[in-house]
Design a protein around this nucleic acid. Structure first.
Length: 292
DNA sequence: ACAGGATAATCTA
DNA sequence: TAGATTATCCTGT
């Protein structure tokens, strides 16, 4: 099956594939010590091993076995590429404006003026919509300059995704407009559409420090990872790795600004705003994209 | 307080 | 005395 056809299947409103994947990740994260076999996992989820096989190849282009490996600590360390780490490309510009061509997703980005951030979005109109994605229901937020927010909605979660996002720019005006945001969702989650001739424009709204961190994140290639301290060093504040962690966690454009590619020095995933499980899923999914 | 981490101090076999 | 646990400090919201 081609990538495009696969995406066509998984972007169905049901989104059951991700539910299954999430279940598997949670299971193996909880008792990774006991090295559960595929049969055990399938049984616990009330599915047959063949069914799991199907879901994984459809979702990530990986066999269940390959996927399980992709989600281990071991693999996370490998993503860091301790031998000859390409490190962050020095080409990203520090400061505001200046779109640059970036990796994999072909994103151009600009930073909104600091005033907008300080005014908490005053005078800004943000249109939003909910769309199915490989990682559950995605909440997409756009301004007239481009993509400004991407969040994930988990029905049973502590905090509603919209509320979470809207609290970042509380004085902006919000208008539901799924027709306007739908093309963004399609573009973002379909690797077949990741082409240079149709770049995705994103708008970063945050503090100066945050924007430098987010720009650094965007230079990490697909299926690679760097540590928080790598980023700190790269933006010229080598002792601020903890502040970097906080800034990474405040990234408003999940997935597109690949905050899931920031790991602890030991390879630990350490945290993710939209749930560690989702971070694992993204890294596993990306591994599948490169394998294909 | 923190989604981190380097370094120093202190403990342990 | 090496090697493994704590203590402390740093940084921006």
């Amino acid at each position: 099956m081609t990538i495009a056809a696969r995406l066509q299947t998984e972007i169905t409103p049901q989104g059951t594939d991700y539910d299954t994947v999430r279940g598997v990740i949670e299971l193996i994260s909880n008792d990774y010590r006991s090295q559960p076999t595929l049969e055990t996992i399938a049984a616990e989820l009330g599915q047959s091993p063949t069914q799991l096989q199907k879901v994984f190849t459809r979702w990530a282009g990986l066999s269940p076995k390959a996927f399980l490996q992709a989600v281990t600590l071991d693999h996370a360390k490998r993503l860091l590429g301790h031998e000859g780490l390409p490190l962050l490309d020095a080409s990203f510009e520090v400061g505001y404006s200046g779109p640059g061509r970036l990796h994999d997703l072909f994103v151009t980005h600009e930073a909104m003026s600091p005033g907008v951030w300080k005014a908490k979005g005053e005078g800004l109109t943000i249109r939003y919509g909910y769309h199915p994605s490989p990682f559950g229901t995605a909440l997409v937020m756009i301004t007239d300059r481009g993509l400004a927010g991407l969040a994930f909605d988990d029905p049973g979660e502590r905090r509603d995704a919209f509320e979470d996002m809207a609290s970042r720019w509380p004085r902006a005006t919000y208008v539901e407009d799924a027709a306007a945001t739908a093309p963004y969702a399609t573009r973002i989650f379909d690797p077949a559409r990741w082409t240079a001739d149709a770049p995705l424009n994103v708008v970063l709204i945050g503090s100066d420090f945050q924007i430098r961190v987010w720009q650094a994140l965007m230079t990490i290639p697909l299926a690679k990872a760097v540590t928080y301290s790598d980023i700190a060093r790269d933006i010229g504040q080598p002792t601020a790795s903890r502040a970097v962690g906080a800034a990474v966690g405040r990234n408003p454009i999940s997935f597109v600004v690949p905050c899931h590619r920031a790991l602890g020095k030991s390879g630990d995933l350490t945290g993710y705003h939209w749930g560690l499980t989702r971070k694992r899923a993204m890294l596993g999914w990306e591994t599948g994209q490169t394998a294909a």
